[in-house]
Design a binder for these strands. Structure first.
Length: 507
RNA sequence: GGCCGAUUCGUCUAUCGGUUAGGACGCAAGAUUUUCAUUCUUGAAAGGGGGGUUCGAUUCCCCCAUCGGCUACCA
């Protein structure tokens, strides 16, 4: 059977999307596009308790930003909709009934308190073939009792009935065959009457089947429940169209151990979320890659290399290249620690490769925030001069503010090192030299000024750095005549005069 | 505790029985630069432990250790 490749990314709207989730989505996307298949967004909001407003919008916005578009989604629709699980209640109810009718599932009335008591009473208590006879469920109660309990609106759950001692095989594209014995599984709750919603496991399997998902690509945290899912497919009689599984290794904390978490970002000063997120309840703000100045292509690139490699030494990949190169057999099996330094390096590379005009467009709003009205053409020239020195768009300001605002303070260290007793006089000479310049091109300035230094046997480093100090306020920046040309003759002179006036000579 | 998974430089990784164990980030040194960066060159840096299998194991098998995940009427 030549089945169409269809994959889905299925997050729960319980908060901002974790960067690990973004990687999972990316791998789904890469595989789908490579195979000419469909990439679907399905919102798994079956936990009414944990629903967070704005989370679904956040998810959509993330993929808009990254430029990964879905073929079907709640927003876009599609012929397999609805794509929000909370809107599929009847579908699940119907399937739960089917399992109940088949005797593959049963109704259980045990209250949370009773369950809790059992767990305290019996060590390693598990609701399964060995214990279900001792519980209050449709297997131990008479049909009449069950009927009347339901009619009296007693809350119940539906549990899957796992037969003991049967080997269950999960075939994983990344890990190979994983076999477990069904006895280690428990009779998981698949439906709760309280909110008339299924749990993840049931909804997931039913939707993947109905939406004709061919490959389930998700995080490793799902590996332990994969056998349950296989069991569910079999219970429905869907084993022939069961999707292929691929469980991706986890993204770990940069230091120490454990899954990368929200707190790591706050602590280390790096984002763990694609976009900035404001918690609707606490108002707490978590930083995002977008707001931190990462380019979407850079984020995609470094995320792709975290858990997958091309087998060559190529590291910089466009999205199209990734689509072509991706494969499950080059996915690693072990978790990857998040390396922020490398992420920065990727961004640096991407900024370097981005056209000056594009960077200018991103830089303009930042300038505006700083209260600066600048001509985009001028900004573009500034950007061209300093873009090699930054990792992030927002660092453009730190590296170029002196192009927009004359220095108010002069770096102490540089003053001490370069502003000598003879410097003010030299700067006055320099002012005269510049005043008389007809041609203010970089070449001409350099020619005249270097000759002046040579003729007077001045110390080149001291003179030039004093000059730089007057222009920049610090001992840094691009080639000095590139700065003066952009600043213009008048502004250059103004800054020189100001420096002579403001900087006191160090002995 | 039980179940599952994983284990190569500090980090991401290559190696599909025989290699001086390769690359990248970061780090260090040097070169370039009138400054700071960039860039370039060079360097330091790795197979968790113990058993097998084999002429030969980082690579295959077993045990242990460590790490991680799961173990909810969460996903």
């Amino acid at each position: 059977m030549n089945q169409k490749i269809r994959v889905r990314f299925a997050p729960s709207p319980t908060g901002p999307l974790h960067i690990g989730g973004v990687r999972t989505a990316l791998y789904n996307y890469l595989f789908a596009k490579q195979q000419g298949g469909d990439f679907i967004l399905r919102i798994e909001d079956t936990d009414s308790q944990r629903f967070v407003t704005g989370a679904e919008e956040y998810i959509q916005e993330t993929f808009d930003w990254l430029g990964l578009s879905f073929d079907e989604s709640p927003r876009k629709g599609g012929k397999f909709g609805p794509y929000r699980q909370s809107e599929r209640k009847e579908i699940y109810r119907h399937h739960v009934d089917e399992l109940l009718d088949k005797g593959a599932a049963y109704i259980a009335f045990d209250t949370p308190e009773e369950l809790e008591a059992k767990r305290n009473e019996i060590p390693n208590f598990q609701y399964d073939a060995s214990t279900r006879k001792t519980m209050r469920n449709s297997l131990t109660l008479s049909a009449d009792e069950v009927k009347s309990l339901i009619e009296n609106h007693t809350q119940y759950v539906v549990r899957i009935k796992i037969e003991p001692d049967i080997p269950i095989t999960v075939n994983d594209l990344i890990r190979g065959e994983v076999v477990i014995n069904s006895s280690v599984l428990d009779d998981k709750v698949i439906y709760k009457s309280a909110d008339e919603l299924p749990t993840y496991h049931l909804a997931n399997v039913v939707d993947d089947h109905l939406m004709e998902i061919s490959h389930v690509i998700r995080g490793e945290e799902w590996l332990p429940s994969a056998p349950l899912h296989v069991w569910l497919y079999k219970s429905f009689g869907w084993e022939n169209t069961m999707p292929q599984f691929a469980h991706l290794p986890l993204l770990l904390k940069p230091e120490g151990n454990g899954k990368l978490s929200k707190r790591d970002g706050d602590r280390l000063g790096f984002p763990v979320f694609p976009l900035e997120w404001r918690d609707p309840k606490t108002g707490e703000i978590s930083s995002g890659y977008r707001e931190s100045g990462y380019l979407p292509a850079a984020v995609i690139n470094f995320l792709a290399l975290l858990g997958w490699n091309p087998g060559t030494e190529q590291e910089i990949f466009s999205l199209d290249e990734l689509v072509r190169a991706f494969s499950f057999d080059r996915c690693s099996k072990s978790g990857a620690k998040f390396d922020f330094e490398k992420a920065k390096w990727f961004n640096h590379k991407y900024i370097h490769a981005t056209r000056d005009e594009e960077l200018t467009a991103m830089f303009m709003p930042i300038l505006k925030e700083k209260g600066i009205e600048a001509n985009p053409e001028y900004v573009c020239k500034v950007v061209a001069l300093v873009k090699d020195r930054v990792n992030f768009v927002k660092e453009l300001w730190e590296q170029s503010s002196y192009f927009f605002v004359a220095p108010e303070h002069y770096d102490e260290k540089t003053v001490k090192k370069r502003w000598k007793a003879e410097t003010p006089d030299q700067m006055r000479e320099l002012i005269r030299l510049i005043e008389n310049m007809e041609d203010f091109s970089a070449e001409n300035q350099e020619r005249i000024i270097m000759k002046w230094i040579e003729d007077n046997r001045y110390h080149t480093g001291n003179v030039m750095n004093a000059f730089r100090l007057a222009l920049v306020g610090e001992g840094k920046g691009p080639h000095i005549f590139d700065i003066t040309v952009l600043l213009g003759k008048e502004e250059t002179l103004r800054r020189l005069r100001k420096a002579i006036e403001r900087i006191s000579v160090s002995e």
